[in-house]
Computed example of a mutant assay.
Amino acid sequence: MKIAVIGGTGFIGSQVVKILKASGHEAVPHSSSTGLDLVSGRGLSEALAGTDVVVNLTDSPTFDDASLSFFRTTMDNLLLAAKEADVSHAVVLSIVGADLVPDLVYYRAKVLQEDILKAGPVPYSIVRATQFFEFIETVMSWTSDDETVRLPATPIQPMASADVAQAVVDVCVGVPLQGTRNIAGPEVFTLDELGRITLTMLDDRRSVITDSNAGIYAAASNDVLIAKSDAIIAQTTYREWLASH
């Protein structure tokens, strides 16, 4: 099976390519570094020629209103080229609960991406994942100083990026879902609790202050970022992952 991985040199994309190749598939990474410009459409026809499946793992360069335009333009271009190339399956990676956090413009943009895919001419699958373990320290850095980290008590269910990549691969090599598959980590934490665990395991002496207004996840109320009962649950726990990294 030939699979075009758009964003295939990025964080998740490079892992997806590696897994696909190890499984015997012809996985071809495409990105700006390989000459593809998804915004203008340059290089798309060449990238999708002879392709069975295309998976879009690109991300908006910003989290503001420009992300709406980015996903609208790139999805329109991708689906037009996929239809012309007779691609039989299009896959995108999205976010668990994206439709439940309207106050975050980036989440609205991801829902727009999903909606364009659903209405498009190519059989599709959507993989919705929870937050990656690898981004937890970045999230903490947004609201931290030399002595404290301020975090809301927002429930989250994070997972390892390696498990995300494997889930994307599983969907890519299967039949189109014509729907959404949710994936999540095995444990639910509040974000402030997860911050304390992280600091303790990293021997970081800063303290976590629970602040309901701190950071972008303050906009997510209740359990909107928690996977529902139909989700596939990954095995890697946060403490296991953090100890190995």
Rank of each mutant, 00 (worst) to 15 (best):
K2D: 10
K2L: 07
I3S: 05
A4Y: 03
I6C: 11
T9I: 04
S14N: 01
V17N: 00
K18F: 08
S23Q: 14
G24P: 10
V28Q: 10
H30R: 14
S31K: 11
S31C: 15
S33K: 12
T34G: 09
R42W: 11
E46H: 12
E46M: 11
T51F: 02
D52R: 15
V53N: 00
V54L: 05
V55R: 01
T58G: 03
T58K: 11
A66C: 06
S67V: 05
L68S: 10
F70P: 03
T73P: 07
M75R: 05
N77E: 09
L78T: 15
L80N: 07
A81M: 13
D86W: 10
S88L: 12
H89L: 05
V92G: 06
V92R: 00
V92E: 12
L93R: 01
L93Q: 05
V96M: 02
G97K: 02
A98K: 10
A98T: 07
V101G: 02
V101A: 01
D103G: 15
D103N: 14
L104T: 05
V105M: 07
V105A: 11
A109P: 01
D115L: 02
L117Y: 01
K118P: 01
A119F: 09
V122G: 07
P123R: 14
S125G: 15
I126W: 06
Q131H: 08
F132C: 00
E134A: 15
F135G: 14
T148I: 14
V149K: 01
R150T: 00
R150N: 13
R150S: 10
L151T: 04
P152A: 06
P152Y: 03
T154L: 03
P155W: 03
P158E: 05
P158M: 06
A160M: 12
A162P: 02
D163K: 02
V164C: 09
C172E: 00
C172P: 07
G174V: 10
V175Y: 09
L177G: 02
G179A: 14
G179I: 08
I183L: 13
P186H: 07
E187Y: 07
E187A: 04
V188Q: 12
F189A: 03
L191E: 04
E193K: 11
E193H: 13
L194M: 08
L194N: 04
R196W: 14
I197R: 10
T198E: 00
T200L: 15
T200A: 13
M201S: 10
S207E: 09
V208L: 05
S212A: 15
S212H: 08
G215L: 09
G215K: 07
G215E: 02
Y217D: 06
A219P: 08
A220S: 10
A220H: 02
N222D: 13
N222S: 10
V224R: 04
V224K: 00
L225K: 00
A227T: 03
S229Q: 08
D230R: 04
D230W: 05
A231D: 01
I232F: 11
I233M: 03
T236Q: 12
Y238K: 00
Y238H: 02
R239P: 13
E240N: 14
W241R: 09
W241V: 08
L242D: 03
